[in-house]
């Protein structure tokens, strides 16, 4: 081994204790007979120590710790509460109408509670259809209706993975497969389309959390990334199933607040009957993104199917 090979192939791993036994022995033998490389090794170790000392671990602020404890407690309470308590909590939710939901929210317990509450609420007919007529015009919903009509006529997906094959796509593909959270979703979806579309949305700097509606009998027909008139990117995803089609829109809208007169709330999702359409509005936990799902099916069906998607996301 010469010095060039040692420095390029061995030095960093030697300093970090990452060499396999045979390689380590070879490295030890080289530095034993080479004062220049020995000095390089000492220097690397010293530099490593200084980085650790200077850029070390910072203590998390006390208020962050408190926030996290509170959020974990809320998650546990949502999981542990008896059904009648959950129902009472959901019955109280309309009081929050008009509030801007604030992130972050623990999705899993919300999903569990949502699914159970939906089943019970549907059974007792608690969805308040009378509120629907009172909803004032909502521009975002109007956009959703217009796109829903457009896509009934023609939906041409534009985000297969190869459409974004420049630069980072290989990296993202790899990340997608190794991400423990994403892998959870992919295991059940069992479709390349799911990963491809999510990856394409991510490549466009848009949320990639697709609804996994496969448990509710839907297939994902495709996705689009477009721009709105003001230049904001928007993603469209089309789901098709026995109960009909669902179009999902996602875009950034910092001004959006949940409209009044939702027929129901399930965690961070609110449901509306609006001009003959069933709509599910969700706020993303991070950023200012909103998701609108729109369909012609009854709102109870939409709630049931989305609850199934939420539940499938945490049952794997």
């Amino acid at each position: 081994m010469d010095c060039r090979e040692y420095i390029s192939e061995y030095l960093a791993g030697h300093a970090d204790g990452e060499l396999a036994p045979l390689a380590r022995r070879a490295g030890d033998e080289h530095v034993a007979g080479c004062p220049i490389c020995r000095a390089q090794l000492i220097e690397n170790r010293a530099l490593k120590a200084m980085v650790r000392q200077s850029a070390g671990i910072v203590k998390a602020p006390a208020d962050l710790k408190a926030r996290i404890r509170t959020a974990l407690d809320q998650a546990d309470r949502a999981n542990d509460a008896p059904w009648d308590t959950r129902l009472a909590a959901f019955a109280a939710m309309p009081r929050r109408i008009g509030e801007r939901l604030r992130a972050p929210i623990v999705w899993a317990p919300a999903g569990i509670a949502a699914a159970i509450a939906i089943a019970l609420m549907i059974a007792i007919g608690s969805v308040n259809h009378r509120r629907a007529a009172a909803i004032p015009p909502v521009p975002q919903f109007e956009l959703a209706i217009a796109r829903y009509h457009d896509f009934q006529r023609e939906f041409v997906p534009n985000v297969p993975a190869e459409a974004y094959s420049d630069g980072d796509s290989t990296l993202y593909a790899w990340v997608m497969n190794r991400d423990p959270v994403r892998r959870v979703a992919a295991d059940e979806a069992q479709t390349d389309a799911f990963d491809d579309i999510a990856r394409s949305y991510r490549s466009a700097n848009m949320p990639d959390d697709l609804f996994d509606l496969t448990q509710a009998g839907y297939e994902i027909a495709g996705g689009r990334v477009d721009r709105m008139a003001d230049g904001r990117p928007v993603t469209y995803t089309l789901y098709t199933g026995r109960a009909g089609q669902i179009v999902s829109l996602c875009f950034s809208d910092p001004t959006m607040a949940a409209p009044l007169h939702a027929v129901n709330w399930l965690g961070m999702r609110s449901f509306y009957e609006y001009k003959g359409y069933s709509i599910c509005l969700s706020f993303y936990p991070t950023g200012h993104f909103i998701s609108i799902l729109i369909s012609r099916m009854p709102v109870t069906q939409l709630m049931r199917d989305i609850a199934a998607a939420d539940l499938s996301g945490i049952s794997r």
Partner: peptide, 23 residues
């Protein structure tokens, strides 16, 4: 920045809790 770091850390912890069965 501290605000984003707080949010990012909190979301990470909650997501880890949600998927802790996968650890």
């Amino acid at each position: 920045n501290a605000d984003d770091a707080n949010d990012l850390a909190q979301e990470t912890i909650l997501r880890a809790y949600r998927f802790f069965d996968q650890f």
